[in-house]
């Protein structure tokens, strides 16, 4: 009974999606033109045709590419901060390798770095990660922290060695975020770097490194790498470890012991 109802619902929903796939190109062009003068306080509804076109062009690669190209052109042409904000939000959804260069150009600027990452972090194409990775050595402080965070969220294995070096950074926020991202990456190679640093971590890095090791160990366990996970947990049993980390590591070992 329920499965029949679901089948009927799914068919109806599919038909509706096809019917909705219509784009008003004149309205879209007008909205794209509006972007040139769009600023804080402007009526957001004037950009709605672009939003609608994104929905309507789903599954139409050529139309999508054209729409993305128009958005990238607007971004590269020099528009207000508010208009940049809008375009980056849209590229978060429709951006491809085609968008990366224009977004990467915003990464080193303190006023636009985040909104560029807002798009780049969610673009699946490897070039988006390349752009953030390439920008990493050129920035410092908060911008560096943000980029490390984005690469960690994407579990970028190519960043492991760069993050390993940053574990000893004099900027404690950079060092902490590098540890956190290595934990998120959660591979054997990431575990190796965390483990190496854990043995010499200064007092203010004990907790971040311990936390990252726990996260990493959980991921190794989930991937079936039980012995590597247990080895990491065991390293967190030392007397120099914060009590919370030791307790959590013991709990992790008990979990590992029950895993097949």
């Amino acid at each position: 009974m329920i499965s029949k109802e679901i089948t009927e619902m799914t068919l109806a929903a599919g038909a509706a999606a096809v019917a909705a796939a219509e784009t008003d190109s004149a309205a879209v062009n007008k909205a794209l033109e509006t972007l040139k003068t769009y600023d804080w306080g402007a009526d957001r509804n004037t950009l709605n045709p672009i939003d609608e076109a994104i929905i309507a062009t789903h599954g139409d690669a050529a139309a999508r590419k054209a729409l993305e190209k128009s958005l990238v052109a607007a971004l590269a042409a020099g528009i207000s901060r508010s208009a940049q904000d809008y375009v980056c939000r849209k590229l978060r959804v429709v951006g491809t390798a085609q968008s990366v260069e224009a977004l990467a150009a915003l990464l080193a600027d303190e006023t636009t770095s985040h909104i560029a990452r807002y798009a780049l972090e969610r673009i699946p194409d490897e070039k988006a990660l390349d752009a953030i990775r390439d920008a990493l050595p050129k920035v410092s402080g908060k911008l560096k922290v943000g980029m490390i965070g984005s690469l960690g969220t994407r579990r970028d294995e190519k960043s492991i060695m760069a993050f390993s070096k940053l574990l000893g950074d004099s900027d404690i926020q950079v060092a902490k975020t590098a540890a956190q991202s290595l934990g998120l990456i959660g591979t054997s190679a990431a575990a190796k770097e965390l483990s190496k640093f854990a043995k010499k971590a200064p007092a203010n890095m004990k907790m971040p490194i311990g936390d990252a090791c726990l996260v990493c160990a959980e991921q190794l366990l989930a991937k079936g790498k039980k012995s590597e996970a247990v080895a990491l947990y065991k390293e967190l049993q030392g007397d120099d470890q914060p009590k919370r980390i030791k307790v959590a590591a013991m709990k992790g070992m008990l979990t590992a012991a029950t895993e097949r």
Partner: peptide, 18 residues
């Protein structure tokens, strides 16, 4: 659905990370 997966999260403003 890669597009939907982009909406699973968003890139946080520095220095906040998750």
């Amino acid at each position: 659905d890669d597009e939907a997966n982009r909406l699973v999260d968003y890139g946080r403003r520095e220095p906040w990370v998750l």
